[in-house]
């Protein structure tokens, strides 16, 4: 490609600056997880592994993690089902309200979380009297996760076109067989990419969760929030965050493996 050497170096330098911007604060998190000061003062006067050993014996964080995983997986599952069927409807049919549906699906992610949060909380508590709990968290999360699955699925369905499906049907396969053998495999990587992003969105969501979580339920972000405001507990939070960064390699690696087999890849 015809990009001058100078431009290449300039871009490389900018990439470096960008990565520094991303990674300096993250290193601060990791360093602070060893900082003996309880209030993260800088530069650390001494280092300790106390927070790591405290975090390991902390059962609250493990419980919070399991709530987060449960909420994330359920919300992702709902988003996958609803997002995919909506994408099918929009890509394959014409109907009244098509434009509005495609706007409506974007709305939950484009309106501020605090608005979605108080709207849902108000609806659950005052209007329909639904007890808040894991279910209400899942409803909240699924609502804004639908769009990412929908967009990934829609893009793939549009690229796929309908010719493969028609060929399959012409050859005598029925709708279900065609879906199972033709459509779904072609759609799979897009769905996984969308699902992974949906899971990620749900996993770090705090605002909507604050307003929709029921008694006894602490997702990981809520646990972190509560612990930052609890004397003596704040340093453990850095340990949890540092661990999350390291563990996040797994889903990222997975998403990359999955996007390899598709031409333009999942979005993320």
């Amino acid at each position: 490609m015809t990009i001058s050497k100078r431009a290449r170096y300039a871009l490389m330098a900018l990439m470096g600056v960008g990565l520094a911007f991303i990674y300096v604060p993250l290193s601060v998190v990791v360093i602070n997880s060893f900082n003996s000061s309880r209030t993260f003062s800088w530069p650390p006067s001494s280092f300790t592994t106390e927070w790591w050993s405290k975090a390991i014996s902390n059962t609250g964080v493990r419980k919070a993690l399991s709530w987060s995983l449960a909420a994330g997986f359920s919300a992702t599952l709902i988003a996958l089902l609803l997002g995919t069927s909506l994408a099918f409807a929009v890509s394959r049919y014409n109907f009244f309200g098509k434009d509005i549906i495609s706007l409506l699906v974007v709305l939950p992610i484009s309106l501020p979380g605090v608005v979605t949060g108080i709207a849902l909380s108000n609806a659950f508590n005052q209007e329909i009297g639904l007890s808040t709990g894991l279910l209400t968290i899942v409803i909240g999360h699924a609502t804004f996760c639908i769009v990412v699955v929908y967009n990934n699925a829609l893009a793939r369905l549009r690229r796929m076109g309908t010719s493969l499906q028609e060929a399959s049907m012409d050859l005598g396969a029925n709708g279900i067989t065609t879906f199972r053998l033709i459509t779904l495999p072609n759609l799979a990587s897009a769905l996984l990419a969308g699902g992974l992003l949906a899971f990620g969105l749900s996993f770090d969501e705090i605002v909507v969760t604050t307003f929709t979580a029921g008694p006894g339920i602490e997702t990981l972000p809520i646990w972190i929030y509560n612990n930052l405001f609890r004397p003596n507990q704040a340093p453990i939070v850095n340990v949890v965050a540092a661990t999350l960064v390291v563990v996040s390699v797994i889903p990222i690696y997975l998403s990359q493996r999955l996007s390899q087999d598709s031409t333009s890849g999942g979005r993320f």
Binding site: I22, I206, P221, I224
Partner: peptide
């Protein structure tokens, strides 16, 4: 991957950083 990683560190922790 490098660009994605910070998405998994908690929002609050990053702001406190």
């Amino acid at each position: 991957a490098l660009v994605l990683t910070p998405l998994w560190a908690s929002y609050l922790v990053k702001i406190y950083a």
